[in-house]
């Protein structure tokens, strides 16, 4: 007779430096660790499955989706997971209160053709959200630009309206913002938190001399000092928020990152609201792409985790968004999610924030009265299933997390598979998540 409980096809396991066994399942997002004594039983179950659940260890494996009943069709589970994202009670809007920016970053890909959101678009967006709210369970707004804090009055106006609409219909609401941090004063942060903006992405590309070379003001002039003062002042607040300090690195700045991490430790270690995220600079479509000293893929894939480890060694947590990306659906790009749209300052609607000029990305228009016109032929290109059409993605252990849709733009442009950084180095990623999770408790 065969075994009744089989190992899931969505499992990965690895060992920590201290010899613990880590087991991850991408369909449930579970990560379990096992000591020496428990490992033989777990490894046997991961290899061939078991006849029936008996011990507490196998009970945990079953409850975590690491073992599944032999009759379960996991391909069907993955397919249903993708289908279940096509729902109308969720909404994610990426809103551009302005498309202008005060920075002139060397690697920026945006062309900044427009300034602040027009009064007509503001009125239309309020109407659209108010109408939609009655059908929603959850809503999420991402404030984006340009530099969104060049137009705080528009964020305020829209937030006030959204908060009223969502309160009226009891919609669970959260918001985040991608800002360069230049205007993120203590007073501004206090206001933003009141408007339910609790997740912040602020970029520092190295110590002052390095950062200012990469991310100076548009008319010239440094920005590091002012951002750093803002972050230090943010620490003095009692409010609940997370600030992801993003560090973009390239070949020239690899050796400067440790100095920045050391500086961050001096001022932020021990305050878990301040978290680190490392990403390689890319040729993202800007005018200076040819001159950018970008790292090779091999170097980038190594350094992301090396720097994250360096952060942990300096008591600086890894950004929670890394761990969240390993949850089911967590690595699917917003551009591929059917309930997500980008709203430009003039009411132009997009799916992707990295290719505003691309014709296929002009998916619709928001009208002054709140009506939305969508070109569903273009829309479909972004939200179609990547894992159903790509047999390699279909058979991959990471399928539930990314659904083959980590970056639909990359697949549309190149025809190639867009694997995430976490998936490329999954064992290192798991060990780093484990380090991060057990750091406080050790």
């Amino acid at each position: 007779m065969g075994n009744n409980l089989m190992p899931s096809r969505f499992n990965v396991h690895t060992y920590t430096d201290s010899g613990e066994l880590l087991v991850y399942n991408s369909y449930t997002g579970a990560i379990l660790s096992f000591s020496d004594g428990e490992q033989p039983e777990v490894l046997a179950a991961l290899k061939d499955g078991i006849v029936a659940q008996g011990s507490s260890v196998t009970a945990h494996l079953l409850a975590s989706g690491i073992l599944v009943p032999a009759h379960v069709d996991e391909f069907m589970r993955a397919k249903l997971l993708y289908q279940s994202s096509h729902r109308t009670d969720l909404m994610h809007l990426i809103v551009m209160p302005t498309e202008a920016c005060n920075f002139g970053c060397t690697y920026c890909y945006q062309t900044f053709p427009r300034g602040k959101m027009t009064p007509q678009t503001i009125a239309g967006l309020k109407q659209f959200v108010d109408h939609k709210a009655r059908f929603l369970q959850s809503a999420s707004i991402s404030w984006f630009g340009g530099e969104p804090l060049l137009a705080p009055e528009i964020i305020e106006q829209l937030s006030d309206s959204f908060l009223q609409s969502f309160a009226r219909y009891d919609v669970d609401y959260s918001a985040d913002i991608a800002t360069n941090g230049y205007y993120l004063t203590k007073e501004m942060l206090t206001k933003l938190v009141k408007w339910k903006i609790t997740r912040y992405m602020v970029t520092l590309d190295g110590p002052a001399i390095v950062h200012d070379r990469k991310r100076g003001l548009r008319g010239g002039g440094g920005t590091f000092e002012r951002i750093f003062v803002n972050l230090k002042n943010a620490r003095l607040l009692d409010e609940q928020f997370e600030i992801y300090i993003r560090v973009n690195f390239d070949e020239e700045t690899l050796s400067d990152v440790p100095e920045l991490v050391h500086m961050l430790k001096e001022h932020f270690a021990g305050d878990e609201r301040f978290q680190l995220l490392f990403r390689p600079v890319g040729r993202w479509g800007g005018p200076h792409d040819d001159q950018l000293p970008i790292c090779s893929d091999r170097t980038a894939n190594l350094k992301i985790w090396e720097f994250a480890q360096l952060g942990l060694d300096h008591d600086m947590p890894m950004a929670s968004i890394v761990e969240n990306s390993m949850m089911p659906g967590g690595s699917v790009c917003y551009a591929a999610k059917p309930y997500s749209l980008v709203v430009g300052a003039n009411g132009q609607l997009y799916k992707c924030t990295c290719a505003f000029e691309e014709e296929d990305n002009h998916v619709g228009r928001l009208h002054d009265d709140g009506r939305v016109d969508l070109d569903y032929d273009k829309f479909a290109k972004w939200v179609s299933s990547g894992d159903d059409t790509d047999p390699v993605c279909g058979a991959c252990y990471y399928r539930p997390a990314c659904q083959g849709n980590h970056c639909p733009l990359f697949r549309m442009r190149t025809g190639n598979r867009p694997c995430s950084f976490e998936k490329r180095k999954i064992r290192t990623a798991l060990e780093t998540v484990w380090q991060d999770a057990t750091r406080v408790r050790r």
Binding site: L22, N25, Y27, T28, G29, A30, I31, L32, S33, F34, S35, E38, S56, V57, H60, A63, S64, G65, R77, L80, L81, S84, E323, M327, P328, G329, P400, H406, C407, P418, C419, S420, F421, R424, V433, W434, A437, T438
Partner: peptide, 14 residues
């Protein structure tokens, strides 16, 4: 055994 991250019920949640 330690639970580093709890499982979620996924459907109906470079």
């Amino acid at each position: 055994m330690k639970v580093i991250r709890k499982p979620v019920s996924p459907i109906g949640a470079a």
